[in-house]
Design a protein around this nucleic acid. Sequence first.
DNA 1: GTTGAAATTAGTACGAA
DNA 2: TTCGTACTAATTTCAAC
Lengths: 197, 197
Amino acid sequence: MRSGRIGIGLELDAVHLKILQVLRENGRISVAALAERVGISRANAYTRFEALRADGAIKRFTAEIDHVRAGLGITALIFVTVRQQMWKQFRAELARMPEVEYCAITTGQHDAMIQVRVSDVAEVHTLVTDRLAGIPAVKATETVFILDEVLKRPYVLPSDGPRPQRRQAPDPSPAEVPLGKMRFVGAAEGRAALRKE
Amino acid sequence: MRSGRIGIGLELDAVHLKILQVLRENGRISVAALAERVGISRANAYTRFEALRADGAIKRFTAEIDHVRAGLGITALIFVTVRQQMWKQFRAELARMPEVEYCAITTGQHDAMIQVRVSDVAEVHTLVTDRLAGIPAVKATETVFILDEVLKRPYVLPSDGPRPQRRQAPDPSPAEVPLGKMRFVGAAEGRAALRKE
DNA sequence: GTTGAAATTAGTACGAA
DNA sequence: TTCGTACTAATTTCAAC
Protein backbone atom coordinates (compact mmCIF):
# COMPACT_ATOMS: atom_id res chain seq x y z
CA MET A 1 0.00 0.00 0.00
CA ARG A 2 2.56 2.53 -1.11
CA SER A 3 0.92 3.74 -4.28
CA GLY A 4 2.00 7.34 -4.22
CA ARG A 5 2.92 9.43 -1.26
CA ILE A 6 -0.59 10.48 -0.33
CA GLY A 7 -2.38 9.60 2.84
CA ILE A 8 -1.11 8.42 6.15
CA GLY A 9 1.25 5.94 4.56
CA LEU A 10 2.16 3.94 7.59
CA GLU A 11 -0.06 3.36 10.56
CA LEU A 12 2.15 3.64 13.61
CA ASP A 13 1.44 1.11 16.31
CA ALA A 14 2.84 0.88 19.83
CA VAL A 15 5.91 -1.00 18.64
CA HIS A 16 6.71 1.65 16.06
CA LEU A 17 6.49 4.33 18.70
CA LYS A 18 8.74 2.38 21.01
CA ILE A 19 11.29 2.08 18.23
CA LEU A 20 11.17 5.83 17.65
CA GLN A 21 11.51 6.39 21.37
CA VAL A 22 14.71 4.37 21.52
CA LEU A 23 16.10 5.77 18.30
CA ARG A 24 15.67 9.38 19.27
CA GLU A 25 17.69 8.83 22.43
CA ASN A 26 20.36 6.78 20.72
CA GLY A 27 20.42 7.25 16.98
CA ARG A 28 23.46 5.04 16.55
CA ILE A 29 22.13 1.95 18.25
CA SER A 30 22.41 -1.20 16.15
CA VAL A 31 19.20 -2.72 14.89
CA ALA A 32 20.05 -5.87 16.82
CA ALA A 33 20.27 -4.00 20.11
CA LEU A 34 17.18 -2.04 19.16
CA ALA A 35 15.25 -5.26 18.67
CA GLU A 36 16.26 -6.45 22.10
CA ARG A 37 15.27 -3.22 23.82
CA VAL A 38 11.91 -3.11 22.09
CA GLY A 39 11.28 -6.79 22.65
CA ILE A 40 10.91 -7.99 19.08
CA SER A 41 12.95 -10.20 16.80
CA ARG A 42 15.80 -8.76 14.79
CA ALA A 43 14.16 -9.44 11.46
CA ASN A 44 11.06 -7.64 12.62
CA ALA A 45 13.15 -4.75 13.82
CA TYR A 46 14.87 -4.49 10.44
CA THR A 47 11.56 -4.53 8.64
CA ARG A 48 10.01 -1.85 10.83
CA PHE A 49 13.15 0.24 10.90
CA GLU A 50 13.28 0.30 7.14
CA ALA A 51 9.55 1.00 6.91
CA LEU A 52 9.84 3.99 9.25
CA ARG A 53 12.71 5.34 7.22
CA ALA A 54 11.03 4.79 3.85
CA ASP A 55 7.77 6.24 5.08
CA GLY A 56 9.43 9.40 6.30
CA ALA A 57 8.44 9.00 9.93
CA ILE A 58 12.17 9.07 10.57
CA LYS A 59 13.44 11.99 8.56
CA ARG A 60 17.13 11.59 9.29
CA PHE A 61 19.69 10.74 11.90
CA THR A 62 21.79 13.49 13.32
CA ALA A 63 24.43 14.26 15.91
CA GLU A 64 23.60 16.80 18.58
CA ILE A 65 26.52 19.13 18.85
CA ASP A 66 27.51 21.35 21.74
CA HIS A 67 27.47 24.75 20.04
CA VAL A 68 29.45 26.35 22.83
CA ARG A 69 32.28 23.85 22.32
CA ALA A 70 31.94 24.37 18.59
CA GLY A 71 32.53 28.08 19.09
CA LEU A 72 28.98 29.37 18.72
CA GLY A 73 28.11 30.40 22.25
CA ILE A 74 25.56 33.07 21.43
CA THR A 75 21.99 32.15 20.52
CA ALA A 76 19.36 34.69 19.63
CA LEU A 77 15.77 34.73 18.48
CA ILE A 78 14.78 37.22 15.84
CA PHE A 79 11.12 37.89 15.28
CA VAL A 80 10.54 39.12 11.79
CA THR A 81 7.68 41.00 10.20
CA VAL A 82 7.62 40.08 6.54
CA ARG A 83 6.17 42.16 3.75
CA GLN A 84 3.20 40.41 2.22
CA GLN A 85 3.83 38.49 -0.99
CA MET A 86 7.56 38.56 -0.47
CA TRP A 87 7.77 35.30 1.41
CA LYS A 88 9.49 33.53 -1.43
CA GLN A 89 12.33 36.04 -1.36
CA PHE A 90 12.52 35.85 2.41
CA ARG A 91 12.87 32.07 2.32
CA ALA A 92 15.51 32.24 -0.36
CA GLU A 93 17.59 34.68 1.65
CA LEU A 94 17.28 32.54 4.77
CA ALA A 95 18.71 29.56 2.96
CA ARG A 96 21.82 31.60 2.31
CA MET A 97 22.37 32.46 5.96
CA PRO A 98 24.36 29.65 7.57
CA GLU A 99 23.92 30.99 11.09
CA VAL A 100 20.18 30.37 10.98
CA GLU A 101 19.34 27.09 12.63
CA TYR A 102 15.57 27.30 12.70
CA CYS A 103 12.82 29.36 11.14
CA ALA A 104 9.11 29.04 11.74
CA ILE A 105 6.16 31.01 10.47
CA THR A 106 3.93 31.98 13.35
CA THR A 107 0.66 33.61 14.20
CA GLY A 108 0.79 36.67 16.41
CA GLN A 109 2.19 40.11 15.93
CA HIS A 110 5.23 38.86 14.06
CA ASP A 111 5.26 36.66 11.00
CA ALA A 112 8.31 34.53 11.57
CA MET A 113 10.74 33.56 14.25
CA ILE A 114 14.30 32.65 13.42
CA GLN A 115 16.92 31.23 15.73
CA VAL A 116 20.56 32.01 15.04
CA ARG A 117 23.84 30.84 16.54
CA VAL A 118 26.95 32.98 16.39
CA SER A 119 30.19 33.36 18.28
CA ASP A 120 29.63 36.76 19.87
CA VAL A 121 26.91 39.32 20.45
CA ALA A 122 28.32 41.78 17.97
CA GLU A 123 27.64 39.29 15.21
CA VAL A 124 23.96 39.32 16.05
CA HIS A 125 23.89 43.04 15.56
CA THR A 126 25.74 42.74 12.26
CA LEU A 127 23.43 39.99 11.14
CA VAL A 128 20.27 41.92 11.89
CA THR A 129 21.26 45.35 10.68
CA ASP A 130 23.45 44.43 7.74
CA ARG A 131 21.91 41.25 6.44
CA LEU A 132 18.30 41.01 7.55
CA ALA A 133 17.54 44.68 7.23
CA GLY A 134 18.92 44.55 3.71
CA ILE A 135 16.26 42.11 2.59
CA PRO A 136 13.34 44.00 1.07
CA ALA A 137 10.94 41.36 2.34
CA VAL A 138 11.85 42.23 5.93
CA LYS A 139 9.70 45.01 7.28
CA ALA A 140 10.83 44.96 10.90
CA THR A 141 12.61 42.77 13.42
CA GLU A 142 12.73 42.25 17.14
CA THR A 143 15.66 40.46 18.70
CA VAL A 144 15.98 38.70 22.04
CA PHE A 145 18.90 36.71 23.38
CA ILE A 146 18.72 33.24 24.78
CA LEU A 147 20.32 33.16 28.21
CA ASP A 148 19.91 29.46 28.84
CA GLU A 149 18.43 26.48 27.09
CA VAL A 150 16.64 24.80 29.93
CA LEU A 151 15.19 21.85 28.11
CA LYS A 152 15.73 20.29 24.75
CA ARG A 153 14.09 17.03 23.96
CA PRO A 154 15.17 15.24 20.80
CA TYR A 155 11.62 14.79 19.72
CA VAL A 156 8.28 14.70 21.42
CA LEU A 157 6.18 11.61 20.79
CA PRO A 158 2.55 10.84 21.59
CA SER A 159 3.69 7.97 23.78
CA ASP A 160 5.80 10.23 25.96
CA GLY A 161 4.02 9.73 29.20
CA PRO A 162 0.81 10.94 30.74
CA ARG A 163 -0.88 13.52 28.58
CA PRO A 164 -3.62 14.82 30.83
CA GLN A 165 -6.61 15.53 28.69
CA ARG A 166 -9.17 18.19 29.36
CA ARG A 167 -10.05 18.15 33.02
CA GLN A 168 -13.35 16.31 33.29
CA ALA A 169 -14.57 17.56 36.65
CA PRO A 170 -12.96 20.74 37.83
CA ASP A 171 -11.76 21.02 41.39
CA PRO A 172 -14.54 21.68 43.90
CA SER A 173 -12.70 24.79 44.95
CA PRO A 174 -11.23 26.05 41.71
CA ALA A 175 -7.80 27.54 42.17
CA GLU A 176 -7.53 31.21 41.56
CA VAL A 177 -6.06 30.92 38.12
CA PRO A 178 -5.23 34.21 36.44
CA LEU A 179 -6.96 33.27 33.22
CA GLY A 180 -7.08 36.85 32.19
CA LYS A 181 -3.32 36.80 31.92
CA MET A 182 -3.31 33.94 29.43
CA ARG A 183 -3.32 35.40 25.97
CA PHE A 184 -3.78 33.58 22.71
CA VAL A 185 -2.55 35.54 19.80
CA GLY A 186 -4.04 34.86 16.39
CA ALA A 187 -2.57 35.70 13.02
CA ALA A 188 -2.30 39.33 12.03
CA GLU A 189 -4.82 40.68 9.58
CA GLY A 190 -4.42 39.89 5.90
CA ARG A 191 -2.42 36.73 6.46
CA ALA A 192 -4.98 34.13 5.61
CA ALA A 193 -2.96 31.71 3.51
CA LEU A 194 0.71 32.45 3.55
CA ARG A 195 1.95 28.90 3.76
CA LYS A 196 4.10 27.72 0.87
CA GLU A 197 3.57 30.98 -0.93
CA MET B 1 45.17 17.17 29.43
CA ARG B 2 41.85 16.00 30.74
CA SER B 3 42.31 16.74 34.41
CA GLY B 4 38.80 17.71 35.35
CA ARG B 5 36.08 19.02 33.10
CA ILE B 6 37.12 22.62 33.17
CA GLY B 7 38.31 24.68 30.27
CA ILE B 8 37.96 24.19 26.57
CA GLY B 9 38.96 20.54 26.80
CA LEU B 10 39.44 19.79 23.14
CA GLU B 11 40.68 22.24 20.58
CA LEU B 12 38.60 21.65 17.48
CA ASP B 13 40.54 21.78 14.23
CA ALA B 14 39.27 21.72 10.67
CA VAL B 15 39.13 17.94 10.63
CA HIS B 16 37.02 17.83 13.76
CA LEU B 17 34.59 20.27 12.24
CA LYS B 18 34.38 18.25 9.07
CA ILE B 19 33.60 15.17 11.11
CA LEU B 20 30.83 17.02 12.92
CA GLN B 21 29.53 18.27 9.60
CA VAL B 22 29.20 14.75 8.23
CA LEU B 23 27.83 13.33 11.45
CA ARG B 24 25.08 15.86 11.84
CA GLU B 25 23.78 15.03 8.38
CA ASN B 26 24.10 11.31 8.81
CA GLY B 27 24.35 10.28 12.42
CA ARG B 28 24.35 6.59 11.55
CA ILE B 29 27.26 6.59 9.17
CA SER B 30 29.92 4.02 9.99
CA VAL B 31 33.25 5.29 11.20
CA ALA B 32 34.88 3.65 8.20
CA ALA B 33 32.69 5.59 5.77
CA LEU B 34 33.18 8.71 7.85
CA ALA B 35 36.95 8.37 7.57
CA GLU B 36 36.67 8.12 3.82
CA ARG B 37 34.43 11.15 3.50
CA VAL B 38 36.66 13.24 5.72
CA GLY B 39 39.84 11.99 4.09
CA ILE B 40 41.61 10.45 7.08
CA SER B 41 42.50 6.92 8.09
CA ARG B 42 40.06 4.72 9.90
CA ALA B 43 42.22 4.59 13.00
CA ASN B 44 42.38 8.36 13.11
CA ALA B 45 38.65 8.61 12.58
CA TYR B 46 38.01 6.29 15.53
CA THR B 47 40.34 8.32 17.75
CA ARG B 48 38.77 11.65 16.87
CA PHE B 49 35.25 10.29 16.96
CA GLU B 50 35.79 8.99 20.47
CA ALA B 51 37.49 12.22 21.53
CA LEU B 52 34.56 14.31 20.31
CA ARG B 53 32.15 12.09 22.17
CA ALA B 54 34.18 12.01 25.38
CA ASP B 55 34.75 15.74 25.28
CA GLY B 56 31.06 16.47 24.93
CA ALA B 57 31.33 18.25 21.60
CA ILE B 58 28.93 15.57 20.40
CA LYS B 59 26.23 15.41 23.01
CA ARG B 60 24.23 12.55 21.56
CA PHE B 61 22.90 10.97 18.41
CA THR B 62 19.26 11.22 17.66
CA ALA B 63 16.63 10.41 15.06
CA GLU B 64 14.68 13.29 13.58
CA ILE B 65 11.06 12.29 13.62
CA ASP B 66 8.21 13.63 11.52
CA HIS B 67 5.88 14.86 14.23
CA VAL B 68 2.95 15.07 11.83
CA ARG B 69 3.34 11.38 10.98
CA ALA B 70 3.77 10.67 14.66
CA GLY B 71 0.40 12.27 15.34
CA LEU B 72 1.53 15.60 16.74
CA GLY B 73 0.64 17.99 13.98
CA ILE B 74 0.18 21.10 16.10
CA THR B 75 3.16 23.12 17.25
CA ALA B 76 2.87 26.21 19.42
CA LEU B 77 5.17 28.66 21.11
CA ILE B 78 4.25 29.82 24.57
CA PHE B 79 6.00 32.87 25.95
CA VAL B 80 5.97 32.77 29.70
CA THR B 81 6.48 35.44 32.31
CA VAL B 82 7.89 33.80 35.40
CA ARG B 83 7.58 35.08 38.94
CA GLN B 84 10.99 35.96 40.28
CA GLN B 85 12.70 33.40 42.49
CA MET B 86 10.36 30.67 41.37
CA TRP B 87 12.47 29.45 38.49
CA LYS B 88 13.34 26.23 40.20
CA GLN B 89 9.71 25.31 40.50
CA PHE B 90 9.06 26.33 36.92
CA ARG B 91 11.85 24.09 35.67
CA ALA B 92 10.63 21.18 37.74
CA GLU B 93 7.12 21.50 36.34
CA LEU B 94 8.41 21.69 32.79
CA ALA B 95 10.23 18.41 33.19
CA ARG B 96 6.88 16.81 33.94
CA MET B 97 5.26 18.06 30.75
CA PRO B 98 6.01 15.58 27.98
CA GLU B 99 4.60 17.81 25.24
CA VAL B 100 7.31 20.39 25.80
CA GLU B 101 10.09 19.94 23.29
CA TYR B 102 12.14 23.02 23.97
CA CYS B 103 12.43 25.71 26.60
CA ALA B 104 14.78 28.67 26.59
CA ILE B 105 15.20 31.58 28.95
CA THR B 106 15.24 34.80 26.99
CA THR B 107 15.76 38.51 27.35
CA GLY B 108 12.89 40.75 26.33
CA GLN B 109 9.44 41.26 27.69
CA HIS B 110 8.95 37.57 28.45
CA ASP B 111 11.19 35.38 30.53
CA ALA B 112 10.98 32.06 28.75
CA MET B 113 9.81 30.56 25.51
CA ILE B 114 8.56 27.02 25.35
CA GLN B 115 7.73 25.00 22.27
CA VAL B 116 5.08 22.32 22.52
CA ARG B 117 3.81 19.65 20.15
CA VAL B 118 0.32 18.27 20.48
CA SER B 119 -2.23 16.56 18.30
CA ASP B 120 -4.85 19.27 18.08
CA VAL B 121 -5.35 22.93 18.88
CA ALA B 122 -7.69 22.24 21.76
CA GLU B 123 -4.84 20.58 23.59
CA VAL B 124 -2.86 23.78 23.47
CA HIS B 125 -5.66 25.56 25.19
CA THR B 126 -5.93 22.85 27.82
CA LEU B 127 -2.21 22.88 28.33
CA VAL B 128 -2.00 26.60 28.84
CA THR B 129 -5.08 27.19 30.93
CA ASP B 130 -5.13 23.98 32.95
CA ARG B 131 -1.48 23.13 33.36
CA LEU B 132 0.66 26.20 32.90
CA ALA B 133 -1.73 28.60 34.56
CA GLY B 134 -1.82 26.27 37.53
CA ILE B 135 1.86 26.71 38.20
CA PRO B 136 2.37 29.48 40.78
CA ALA B 137 5.65 30.41 39.12
CA VAL B 138 3.80 31.36 35.94
CA LYS B 139 2.65 34.95 36.01
CA ALA B 140 1.39 35.26 32.44
CA THR B 141 1.62 33.56 29.06
CA GLU B 142 1.28 34.46 25.45
CA THR B 143 0.70 31.77 22.87
CA VAL B 144 1.30 31.74 19.14
CA PHE B 145 0.91 28.88 16.71
CA ILE B 146 3.50 27.69 14.27
CA LEU B 147 2.01 27.55 10.80
CA ASP B 148 5.04 26.18 9.03
CA GLU B 149 8.58 25.21 9.88
CA VAL B 150 10.47 26.72 7.00
CA LEU B 151 13.96 25.73 7.94
CA LYS B 152 15.46 23.34 10.42
CA ARG B 153 19.15 22.69 10.31
CA PRO B 154 20.45 19.82 12.43
CA TYR B 155 23.11 22.03 13.91
CA VAL B 156 24.87 25.17 12.90
CA LEU B 157 28.66 25.01 12.81
CA PRO B 158 31.27 27.74 12.44
CA SER B 159 32.46 26.08 9.25
CA ASP B 160 29.05 26.34 7.65
CA GLY B 161 29.92 28.58 4.79
CA PRO B 162 30.60 32.24 4.32
CA ARG B 163 29.96 34.19 7.49
CA PRO B 164 30.18 37.76 6.32
CA GLN B 165 31.76 39.76 9.08
CA ARG B 166 31.08 43.38 9.79
CA ARG B 167 30.97 45.26 6.56
CA GLN B 168 34.33 47.01 6.23
CA ALA B 169 33.46 49.69 3.74
CA PRO B 170 29.79 50.43 3.43
CA ASP B 171 28.22 50.77 0.02
CA PRO B 172 28.89 54.12 -1.64
CA SER B 173 25.15 54.68 -1.86
CA PRO B 174 23.86 53.11 1.34
CA ALA B 175 20.59 51.32 0.86
CA GLU B 176 17.65 52.86 2.63
CA VAL B 177 17.65 50.42 5.50
CA PRO B 178 14.86 50.94 8.01
CA LEU B 179 17.20 50.73 10.96
CA GLY B 180 14.63 52.34 13.15
CA LYS B 181 12.49 49.25 12.76
CA MET B 182 15.17 46.92 14.08
CA ARG B 183 14.64 46.52 17.78
CA PHE B 184 16.90 44.84 20.25
CA VAL B 185 15.13 43.90 23.40
CA GLY B 186 17.14 43.57 26.58
CA ALA B 187 16.19 41.71 29.72
CA ALA B 188 13.36 43.03 31.82
CA GLU B 189 14.22 44.87 34.99
CA GLY B 190 15.24 42.86 38.03
CA ARG B 191 16.45 39.85 36.09
CA ALA B 192 20.16 40.21 36.49
CA ALA B 193 21.21 36.67 37.28
CA LEU B 194 18.47 34.15 36.78
CA ARG B 195 20.52 31.42 35.19
CA LYS B 196 20.68 28.14 37.09
CA GLU B 197 18.72 29.61 39.96
C1' DG C 1 6.84 -13.00 12.86
C1' DT C 2 10.68 -15.85 14.55
C1' DT C 3 15.05 -18.32 14.78
C1' DG C 4 19.66 -19.69 13.31
C1' DA C 5 23.56 -19.84 10.18
C1' DA C 6 26.71 -17.51 6.43
C1' DA C 7 28.62 -13.28 4.58
C1' DT C 8 29.85 -8.90 5.39
C1' DT C 9 31.22 -5.14 7.98
C1' DA C 10 32.61 -2.84 12.18
C1' DG C 11 35.77 -2.15 16.03
C1' DT C 12 40.43 -3.05 18.31
C1' DA C 13 45.30 -3.55 18.78
C1' DC C 14 49.32 -3.43 17.34
C1' DG C 15 54.00 -1.67 14.90
C1' DA C 16 55.89 1.65 11.52
C1' DA C 17 56.34 6.11 9.52
C1' DT D 1 49.80 12.14 15.69
C1' DT D 2 48.70 9.59 11.97
C1' DC D 3 48.63 5.55 9.05
C1' DG D 4 48.28 0.64 7.61
C1' DT D 5 47.45 -3.92 8.58
C1' DA D 6 45.95 -7.95 10.85
C1' DC D 7 42.88 -9.82 14.29
C1' DT D 8 38.54 -10.21 16.87
C1' DA D 9 33.86 -9.21 17.62
C1' DA D 10 29.61 -7.74 16.03
C1' DT D 11 26.12 -6.75 12.69
C1' DT D 12 23.29 -7.51 8.61
C1' DT D 13 21.47 -10.57 5.27
C1' DC D 14 19.17 -14.58 3.95
C1' DA D 15 17.44 -18.86 4.50
C1' DA D 16 14.09 -22.21 6.55
C1' DC D 17 10.69 -22.82 10.21
